[in-house]
């Protein structure tokens, strides 16, 4: 999976936010807040080909149940895909 380069992750007031820049700033109104795990997923998304690979990354890094992690990653990825923030 590939991040759209125009979206940049930054920390604002102790929160992770995804800021649309360039052409994304024109179509996307607002910024997106991420929690720590979402930010972790974001930083690893480029090197993961599949949802499974991303789930593995998450469960290796955090103490989370694999079922829960899988569900969360699926939702996360599908939301980002639907919003055009990442590509397959």
């Amino acid at each position: 999976m590939k991040k759209v380069e125009d979206f940049i992750l930054r920390e604002i007031a102790g929160e992770y936010v995804l800021v649309p820049t360039g052409s994304a700033s024109k179509v996307f109104d607002g910024i997106i807040t991420f929690n720590e795990q979402a930010a972790f997923l974001w930083n690893n998304i480029d090197e993961c080909e599949t949802v499974e690979a991303l789930v593995k990354k998450l469960t290796d890094e955090y103490d989370v149940d694999e079922e829960v992690a899988k569900r969360d990653v699926e939702v996360f990825v599908s939301q980002l895909l639907a919003a055009g923030i990442i590509n397959k």
Binding site: P20, S25, K26, F28, D29
Partner: peptide
């Protein structure tokens, strides 16, 4: 910081 690095933001 983003603007300084040549990015456009909304």
């Amino acid at each position: 910081e983003l603007i300084k690095n040549g990015k456009e933001v909304s």
